[in-house]
Simulated assay, not measured.
Amino acid sequence: MLHVFVNDVGLLRWAREAAEGAEPLPEATVWLDLIDPTAEELARAEALIGTSLPTREQMAEIEESSRLRIAGGALTMTVTALVWADTDEPRIATVSFVLAGRRLVTIHDIDPQALLAFRRRASHGQVPASRGELVLAALVDGMVDRTSAVLRRTGVELDVLNRRFFRGRKLRSRGETLDDAQTLKRIGHAGHLIGKARLSLASLSRMTDFLARGDGWNSGKATRRWAKTTLQDLRGLDQYARFLSGKVALALDTALGQINVEQNEIVKIVSVLTVLLFPPTLVASICGMNFEEMPGTDSPFGYPSALGLMLLSALLPMIYVRLKRWM
Protein backbone atom coordinates (compact mmCIF):
# COMPACT_ATOMS: atom_id res chain seq x y z
CA MET A 1 0.00 0.00 0.00
CA LEU A 2 1.30 3.44 -0.95
CA HIS A 3 0.41 6.72 0.76
CA VAL A 4 1.58 9.93 -0.87
CA PHE A 5 1.79 13.19 1.06
CA VAL A 6 2.71 16.41 -0.72
CA ASN A 7 3.67 19.89 0.42
CA ASP A 8 0.62 22.13 0.23
CA VAL A 9 1.64 25.64 1.32
CA GLY A 10 3.72 24.32 4.22
CA LEU A 11 1.21 21.63 5.26
CA LEU A 12 1.18 17.95 4.46
CA ARG A 13 -1.69 16.95 2.23
CA TRP A 14 -2.67 13.38 1.44
CA ALA A 15 -2.66 13.02 -2.35
CA ARG A 16 -4.97 10.04 -2.65
CA GLU A 17 -5.18 10.23 -6.42
CA ALA A 18 -1.39 10.13 -6.83
CA ALA A 19 -1.13 6.64 -5.30
CA GLU A 20 -3.42 5.18 -7.95
CA GLY A 21 -2.33 4.21 -11.41
CA ALA A 22 1.20 4.00 -12.78
CA GLU A 23 1.90 7.69 -13.44
CA PRO A 24 5.03 9.29 -11.96
CA LEU A 25 4.59 10.61 -8.45
CA PRO A 26 4.24 14.40 -8.09
CA GLU A 27 7.35 16.52 -7.60
CA ALA A 28 5.79 18.17 -4.55
CA THR A 29 5.90 14.85 -2.68
CA VAL A 30 7.43 15.17 0.78
CA TRP A 31 6.59 11.79 2.35
CA LEU A 32 5.96 8.37 0.86
CA ASP A 33 4.63 5.75 3.27
CA LEU A 34 4.97 2.21 1.92
CA ILE A 35 3.11 -0.50 3.86
CA ASP A 36 3.99 -4.02 2.65
CA PRO A 37 4.70 -2.52 -0.79
CA THR A 38 4.41 -4.27 -4.10
CA ALA A 39 7.17 -4.26 -6.71
CA GLU A 40 5.33 -1.61 -8.76
CA GLU A 41 5.00 0.70 -5.74
CA LEU A 42 8.68 0.32 -4.92
CA ALA A 43 9.60 1.11 -8.52
CA ARG A 44 7.52 4.30 -8.50
CA ALA A 45 9.07 5.44 -5.23
CA GLU A 46 12.60 4.69 -6.45
CA ALA A 47 11.95 6.61 -9.69
CA LEU A 48 10.93 9.67 -7.66
CA ILE A 49 13.84 9.75 -5.19
CA GLY A 50 16.44 8.53 -7.71
CA THR A 51 17.91 5.73 -5.61
CA SER A 52 17.12 2.17 -4.64
CA LEU A 53 15.14 1.36 -1.50
CA PRO A 54 16.15 -1.35 1.00
CA THR A 55 14.78 -4.82 0.44
CA ARG A 56 13.18 -6.98 3.13
CA GLU A 57 16.44 -8.90 3.47
CA GLN A 58 18.40 -5.70 4.01
CA MET A 59 15.84 -4.44 6.53
CA ALA A 60 16.22 -7.68 8.48
CA GLU A 61 19.98 -7.20 8.93
CA ILE A 62 21.09 -6.49 12.49
CA GLU A 63 24.54 -5.01 11.79
CA GLU A 64 24.71 -1.29 12.43
CA SER A 65 26.50 -0.71 9.12
CA SER A 66 23.50 -2.24 7.33
CA ARG A 67 20.89 -0.36 9.35
CA LEU A 68 22.58 3.06 9.16
CA ARG A 69 24.15 3.79 5.81
CA ILE A 70 24.53 6.44 3.14
CA ALA A 71 24.27 5.24 -0.46
CA GLY A 72 23.32 6.92 -3.68
CA GLY A 73 22.93 10.31 -2.04
CA ALA A 74 20.27 8.96 0.34
CA LEU A 75 20.39 8.25 4.05
CA THR A 76 18.86 4.89 4.98
CA MET A 77 18.06 4.16 8.64
CA THR A 78 16.32 1.03 9.87
CA VAL A 79 14.85 0.83 13.36
CA THR A 80 12.63 -1.56 15.29
CA ALA A 81 9.29 -0.28 16.54
CA LEU A 82 7.09 -1.70 19.27
CA VAL A 83 3.72 -2.78 17.83
CA TRP A 84 0.63 -4.52 19.20
CA ALA A 85 1.58 -3.40 22.69
CA ASP A 86 -2.08 -3.43 23.79
CA THR A 87 -2.50 -7.11 22.96
CA ASP A 88 -1.28 -10.33 24.55
CA GLU A 89 1.29 -10.72 21.77
CA PRO A 90 3.44 -7.56 21.48
CA ARG A 91 5.83 -7.64 18.58
CA ILE A 92 8.75 -5.75 17.07
CA ALA A 93 8.28 -4.36 13.58
CA THR A 94 11.07 -3.18 11.31
CA VAL A 95 10.71 0.34 9.89
CA SER A 96 13.12 1.87 7.37
CA PHE A 97 13.49 5.62 6.91
CA VAL A 98 15.06 6.81 3.67
CA LEU A 99 15.95 10.50 3.42
CA ALA A 100 16.66 11.59 -0.13
CA GLY A 101 16.97 15.34 -0.45
CA ARG A 102 13.83 16.94 0.90
CA ARG A 103 11.81 13.74 0.67
CA LEU A 104 11.25 10.95 3.19
CA VAL A 105 10.26 7.36 2.41
CA THR A 106 9.12 4.97 5.15
CA ILE A 107 8.90 1.24 4.53
CA HIS A 108 7.28 -1.25 6.92
CA ASP A 109 5.13 -4.37 6.86
CA ILE A 110 3.23 -3.70 10.11
CA ASP A 111 1.75 -0.29 10.81
CA PRO A 112 3.08 1.08 14.13
CA GLN A 113 0.60 3.08 16.17
CA ALA A 114 2.76 6.21 15.95
CA LEU A 115 2.86 6.17 12.14
CA LEU A 116 -0.86 5.45 11.92
CA ALA A 117 -1.71 8.37 14.22
CA PHE A 118 0.61 10.73 12.33
CA ARG A 119 -0.85 9.67 8.99
CA ARG A 120 -4.36 10.37 10.27
CA ARG A 121 -3.34 13.83 11.41
CA ALA A 122 -1.65 14.51 8.09
CA SER A 123 -4.70 13.36 6.15
CA HIS A 124 -6.67 16.14 7.88
CA GLY A 125 -4.09 18.79 7.01
CA GLN A 126 -2.98 19.29 10.61
CA VAL A 127 0.77 18.71 10.17
CA PRO A 128 3.07 21.58 9.14
CA ALA A 129 5.98 19.91 7.37
CA SER A 130 7.63 21.08 4.18
CA ARG A 131 10.70 18.79 4.28
CA GLY A 132 11.33 15.13 4.89
CA GLU A 133 13.53 15.81 7.93
CA LEU A 134 10.58 17.47 9.70
CA VAL A 135 8.39 14.46 8.96
CA LEU A 136 11.15 12.15 10.23
CA ALA A 137 11.41 14.11 13.48
CA ALA A 138 7.63 13.99 13.99
CA LEU A 139 7.47 10.24 13.32
CA VAL A 140 10.33 9.42 15.67
CA ASP A 141 8.83 11.66 18.37
CA GLY A 142 5.57 9.76 18.00
CA MET A 143 7.35 6.41 18.36
CA VAL A 144 9.18 7.64 21.46
CA ASP A 145 5.94 8.94 23.00
CA ARG A 146 4.19 5.66 22.25
CA THR A 147 6.97 3.61 23.87
CA SER A 148 6.97 5.97 26.86
CA ALA A 149 3.22 5.50 27.31
CA VAL A 150 3.59 1.70 27.18
CA LEU A 151 6.38 1.76 29.79
CA ARG A 152 4.38 4.08 32.03
CA ARG A 153 1.34 1.82 31.86
CA THR A 154 3.48 -1.24 32.56
CA GLY A 155 5.02 0.51 35.56
CA VAL A 156 1.58 1.21 37.00
CA GLU A 157 0.58 -2.43 36.59
CA LEU A 158 3.76 -3.61 38.31
CA ASP A 159 3.09 -1.20 41.20
CA VAL A 160 -0.37 -2.72 41.63
CA LEU A 161 1.06 -6.24 41.65
CA ASN A 162 3.82 -5.39 44.13
CA ARG A 163 1.42 -3.63 46.49
CA ARG A 164 -0.83 -6.66 46.40
CA PHE A 165 2.10 -8.96 47.18
CA PHE A 166 3.46 -7.00 50.12
CA ARG A 167 0.08 -6.03 51.54
CA GLY A 168 -0.46 -9.57 52.74
CA ARG A 169 -3.47 -11.84 52.55
CA LYS A 170 -5.08 -10.50 55.73
CA LEU A 171 -5.39 -7.03 54.21
CA ARG A 172 -6.94 -7.94 50.91
CA SER A 173 -9.96 -6.06 49.69
CA ARG A 174 -13.33 -7.77 49.87
CA GLY A 175 -13.87 -10.10 46.97
CA GLU A 176 -10.23 -9.89 45.87
CA THR A 177 -8.61 -13.11 44.81
CA LEU A 178 -5.14 -13.97 43.60
CA ASP A 179 -4.78 -16.50 40.82
CA ASP A 180 -1.17 -17.63 40.91
CA ALA A 181 -1.14 -18.75 37.28
CA GLN A 182 -2.72 -15.49 36.09
CA THR A 183 -0.34 -13.45 38.24
CA LEU A 184 2.70 -15.18 36.79
CA LYS A 185 1.29 -14.64 33.32
CA ARG A 186 0.89 -10.90 33.96
CA ILE A 187 4.43 -10.64 35.30
CA GLY A 188 5.80 -12.55 32.33
CA HIS A 189 3.86 -10.38 29.89
CA ALA A 190 5.20 -7.21 31.55
CA GLY A 191 8.77 -8.48 31.29
CA HIS A 192 8.23 -9.50 27.67
CA LEU A 193 6.82 -6.08 26.82
CA ILE A 194 9.65 -4.23 28.57
CA GLY A 195 12.24 -6.31 26.74
CA LYS A 196 10.76 -5.43 23.34
CA ALA A 197 10.46 -1.78 24.35
CA ARG A 198 14.15 -1.71 25.27
CA LEU A 199 15.03 -3.25 21.92
CA SER A 200 13.08 -0.50 20.16
CA LEU A 201 14.67 2.21 22.31
CA ALA A 202 18.15 0.89 21.54
CA SER A 203 17.57 1.04 17.78
CA LEU A 204 16.08 4.54 18.00
CA SER A 205 19.04 5.66 20.14
CA ARG A 206 21.50 4.45 17.51
CA MET A 207 19.61 6.29 14.79
CA THR A 208 19.32 9.60 16.67
CA ASP A 209 22.98 9.39 17.71
CA PHE A 210 23.87 8.93 14.04
CA LEU A 211 21.82 11.99 13.10
CA ALA A 212 23.23 14.05 15.98
CA ARG A 213 26.82 13.39 14.86
CA GLY A 214 26.02 14.10 11.22
CA ASP A 215 28.75 11.76 9.98
CA GLY A 216 28.70 11.89 6.19
CA TRP A 217 25.26 13.48 6.08
CA ASN A 218 24.72 17.22 5.78
CA SER A 219 21.74 17.52 8.11
CA GLY A 220 20.56 20.91 9.29
CA LYS A 221 21.35 22.41 12.66
CA ALA A 222 17.72 22.07 13.70
CA THR A 223 17.78 18.36 12.90
CA ARG A 224 21.01 17.79 14.85
CA ARG A 225 19.65 19.76 17.80
CA TRP A 226 16.43 17.72 17.73
CA ALA A 227 18.42 14.49 17.49
CA LYS A 228 20.51 15.40 20.56
CA THR A 229 17.39 16.23 22.58
CA THR A 230 15.63 13.04 21.48
CA LEU A 231 18.73 11.00 22.30
CA GLN A 232 18.62 12.30 25.89
CA ASP A 233 14.95 11.34 26.13
CA LEU A 234 15.71 7.87 24.81
CA ARG A 235 18.48 7.34 27.32
CA GLY A 236 16.17 8.41 30.13
CA LEU A 237 13.51 5.98 28.92
CA ASP A 238 16.08 3.19 28.72
CA GLN A 239 17.04 3.83 32.35
CA TYR A 240 13.38 3.73 33.33
CA ALA A 241 12.97 0.46 31.39
CA ARG A 242 15.92 -1.00 33.33
CA PHE A 243 14.24 0.06 36.56
CA LEU A 244 11.05 -1.68 35.46
CA SER A 245 13.04 -4.80 34.61
CA GLY A 246 14.21 -4.83 38.23
CA LYS A 247 10.62 -4.52 39.41
CA VAL A 248 9.66 -7.45 37.19
CA ALA A 249 12.41 -9.55 38.77
CA LEU A 250 11.23 -8.52 42.25
CA ALA A 251 7.60 -9.32 41.44
CA LEU A 252 8.56 -12.69 39.97
CA ASP A 253 10.71 -13.63 42.98
CA THR A 254 7.94 -12.51 45.35
CA ALA A 255 5.26 -14.45 43.48
CA LEU A 256 7.33 -17.63 43.37
CA GLY A 257 8.25 -17.20 47.04
CA GLN A 258 4.62 -16.83 48.07
CA ILE A 259 3.63 -19.86 46.01
CA ASN A 260 6.39 -21.84 47.72
CA VAL A 261 5.26 -20.66 51.17
CA GLU A 262 1.65 -21.59 50.38
CA GLN A 263 2.69 -25.05 49.26
CA ASN A 264 4.77 -25.50 52.42
CA GLU A 265 1.80 -24.45 54.55
CA ILE A 266 -0.41 -27.00 52.83
CA VAL A 267 2.14 -29.76 53.39
CA LYS A 268 2.52 -28.66 57.03
CA ILE A 269 -1.23 -28.74 57.65
CA VAL A 270 -1.56 -32.16 56.06
CA SER A 271 1.35 -33.49 58.12
CA VAL A 272 -0.03 -32.14 61.41
CA LEU A 273 -3.52 -33.47 60.67
CA THR A 274 -2.05 -36.86 59.93
CA VAL A 275 -0.33 -36.88 63.34
CA LEU A 276 -3.46 -35.65 65.11
CA LEU A 277 -5.63 -38.36 63.58
CA PHE A 278 -3.21 -41.14 64.37
CA PRO A 279 -4.14 -41.65 68.13
CA PRO A 280 -7.93 -41.93 67.59
CA THR A 281 -7.27 -44.21 64.64
CA LEU A 282 -5.10 -46.38 66.85
CA VAL A 283 -7.80 -46.52 69.57
CA ALA A 284 -10.46 -47.37 66.99
CA SER A 285 -8.26 -50.11 65.55
CA ILE A 286 -7.66 -51.71 68.95
CA CYS A 287 -11.30 -51.50 70.04
CA GLY A 288 -12.45 -52.87 66.74
CA MET A 289 -10.50 -56.11 66.94
CA ASN A 290 -12.71 -59.11 66.35
CA PHE A 291 -11.81 -61.28 69.39
CA GLU A 292 -14.16 -63.05 71.75
CA GLU A 293 -12.28 -62.00 74.86
CA MET A 294 -12.11 -58.20 74.58
CA PRO A 295 -12.09 -55.96 77.69
CA GLY A 296 -15.27 -53.94 77.98
CA THR A 297 -17.15 -55.85 75.31
CA ASP A 298 -19.87 -56.93 77.74
CA SER A 299 -19.90 -53.64 79.63
CA PRO A 300 -22.77 -51.18 78.93
CA PHE A 301 -20.17 -48.36 79.03
CA GLY A 302 -17.74 -50.01 76.64
CA TYR A 303 -18.85 -48.17 73.49
CA PRO A 304 -19.11 -44.69 75.13
CA SER A 305 -15.75 -45.27 76.80
CA ALA A 306 -14.16 -46.10 73.43
CA LEU A 307 -15.65 -42.95 71.90
CA GLY A 308 -14.46 -40.83 74.82
CA LEU A 309 -10.97 -42.31 74.60
CA MET A 310 -10.86 -41.58 70.87
CA LEU A 311 -11.98 -37.98 71.46
CA LEU A 312 -9.48 -37.49 74.26
CA SER A 313 -6.65 -38.95 72.20
CA ALA A 314 -7.46 -36.43 69.45
CA LEU A 315 -7.86 -33.38 71.76
CA LEU A 316 -4.67 -33.83 73.77
CA PRO A 317 -2.28 -33.74 70.75
CA MET A 318 -4.25 -30.81 69.30
CA ILE A 319 -3.86 -28.83 72.54
CA TYR A 320 -0.17 -29.63 72.58
CA VAL A 321 0.26 -28.45 68.97
CA ARG A 322 -1.56 -25.19 69.73
CA LEU A 323 0.59 -24.57 72.81
CA LYS A 324 3.70 -25.07 70.74
CA ARG A 325 2.26 -22.70 68.04
CA TRP A 326 2.90 -25.20 65.31
CA MET A 327 -0.46 -24.27 63.74
Rank of each mutant, 00 (worst) to 15 (best):
G246C: 05
R174E: 15
A306H: 00
R186E: 13
E61H: 09
I266Q: 07
A314H: 01
P304Q: 01
M289Q: 10
P24T: 06
D253V: 07
F243M: 11
T147M: 07
K196S: 10
L315V: 09
T230M: 11
R174L: 13
L252T: 14
V140Q: 02
V140P: 04
L311T: 03
G125D: 09
E265S: 08
K196E: 09
E89R: 14
I319Q: 09
P317L: 09
L256T: 08
L68W: 09
L2R: 02
A114G: 07
D86E: 14
K247P: 04
M77R: 04
E265K: 14
V270Q: 12
G155K: 00
H189S: 04
A129D: 10
W226S: 00
M327Y: 15
A314Y: 01
A60D: 08
R169I: 11
L2N: 06
E46N: 03
G132Y: 11
A190Q: 05
T297P: 02
S271P: 05
L256R: 12
G296Y: 00
L201T: 01
G188N: 04
D233A: 12
W226F: 07
D111V: 14
V156G: 11
G257N: 12
L158C: 09
I107P: 07
A197F: 01
R198G: 01
Q258W: 10
I286P: 00
Y320W: 15
T208V: 10
F5D: 05
R16P: 05
L231K: 09
A45Y: 03
P37E: 03
L244P: 04
D253I: 03
E262T: 13
A190S: 07
G214V: 00
E41D: 11
A129S: 10
T51K: 04
F278A: 15
V283L: 05
A222D: 12
L256N: 07
S65I: 04
T154V: 09
E27T: 10
E176Q: 13
R119V: 11
E262K: 14
P26H: 07
T297W: 10
A100L: 02
L161H: 09
S96G: 03
A60T: 04
D33N: 13
A100P: 02
L161R: 12
R213N: 01
V6A: 14
K221E: 15
A306G: 01
Q182I: 10
L34P: 03
L184V: 02
G191C: 00
L211P: 03
D298V: 05
L11E: 05
L82F: 05
L276E: 08
V272A: 10
L250T: 15
L307H: 03
A74E: 02
R325W: 06
S65D: 14
S123D: 14
S245D: 13
E176Y: 08
L136A: 08
A81G: 06
E157A: 14
M207K: 07
Y240Q: 09
V79T: 10
M143N: 02
A18L: 08
L273S: 10
